[in-house]
Design a protein around this nucleic acid. Structure first.
Lengths: 208, 208
DNA sequence: TTCTTCTAGTTAAATCATTCTCGATATAAA
DNA sequence: TTTATATCGAGAATGATTTAACTAGAAGAA
């Protein structure tokens, strides 16, 4: 077991492993080999799984496989899912509304506790039980409520300024749905979810 | 200029290049060097840009840079954005609704022309000008209307079966929002957009 | 107990992606 | 025209990730 220099690709796969472990656990499987584990994960092979897990510890038993309840615990621990993470949503448009009403986040400890917008028509609305506040209050509210992560669902041209506000309020992680690459300080991690770009990318592969 | 074996990562960046070119073009810039081009693209450097573009042709002029209107044309051509692409949406829930009402797709020739759901309460509704049809009609309608790509926004446990229907109806590209890795024939390309997983991934990097 | 079989996890090789180096060529200045 | 300067694009070198080969330990059979 080493530490540090864990590939990003490995981290990307951990949530999939967690989901798969829970599925198998729910199916009553206890000891599962790497081969069997990846059976329902197209694009991932048993080598990937074993190598990925080996970055964090020796969770398997030679000749046997992995114990699902153990693995679930370890993965939740690695991904820090045993605590609540408070999230701010910025931009309560179509996508923002979908995110606010998305129930699946709760299950993993993600709590969208505040939402912001700059449109008078939207401010004051209650969406998914969350009050939409004016964007001007972002920094103070985020700071006061100790929000750790932000979701940006605003138009492209305001994304960077929203990002600046979030980071200056102390946020350390951003999930960005705007089609804008964000310039952030080193200690802040950004994950980009650019649906239109992904669709264009997909389009490239159509009728090659 | 070679052909074939173009890295996936290169394709992922092309939409960003296109967006950036259009921005610069709109700003009245004609000839732009690779250095200047990537100024607003954090995480991408001029080497990346030049290498990526060199897979497709010699679009630049030594000593000068790239002509924006030429580059826009080339990129739109590479990404096949000069024609309409008909898209089917499956799953008219929160996210599905956001996708149906998202205006940005139109600008790039993507037309969501049909939508499906399996909930009686939703079937028959008109969302963003599109009628939600029963999932049973998926295969025949997709085939009849010559839909080329599908967006899957259904719960995890029905994603694979929806994917099977789409591919057997002849679809060649899938944008999958369900947290399920899809098993598809070789000729079908899948792009995964798994928001919850991405959030978990982000969570890993928080307060390291 | 000893032998066989299985499979995790380590190390090594191969593949893939990024960064570096440099020659070629266009523009502008002398 | 000649020279200096800028920058693209090809290929080499480096770095990261994946795949393959191998070692070691656990379980069950003989």
């Amino acid at each position: 077991m080493k530490k540090l220099k864990i590939p990003e690709k490995t981290i990307e796969r951990l949530p999939l492993y967690l989901r798969r472990s829970e599925k198998l656990h729910a199916m009553g499987e206890n000891s599962v080999t790497s081969q069997k584990f990846v059976r329902d994960l197209p694009g991932i092979n048993s080598d990937n799984l074993r190598k990925d897990l080996s970055y964090f510890g020796n969770y398997g038993k030679k000749g046997n496989g992995y114990d699902m309840s153990r693995l679930i615990k370890e993965l939740r621990n690695i991904l820090k899912l045993n605590k609540e993470t408070h999230v701010a949503l910025v931009g309560a448009g179509n996508l923002g509304t979908a995110l606010l009403t998305h129930q699946d986040f709760n299950r993993w400890g993600f709590r969208i506790t505040v939402a912001f917008d700059n449109r008078p028509k939207v401010i004051g609305n209650q969406i998914g039980g969350i009050l939409v506040e004016p964007i001007q209050d972002l920094e103070s509210t985020v700071r006061k409520k100790k929000i750790e992560a932000g979701m940006i669902a605003v138009p492209a041209d305001s994304a960077q300024s929203v990002s600046d506000s979030l980071t200056s309020a102390g946020i350390k992680g951003i999930l960005n749905f705007a089609p804008t690459l964000l310039d952030v300080p080193d200690e802040v991690k950004v994950k980009q979810v650019d649906i239109t770009s992904t669709l264009k990318e997909l389009n490239y592969y159509l009728q090659e």
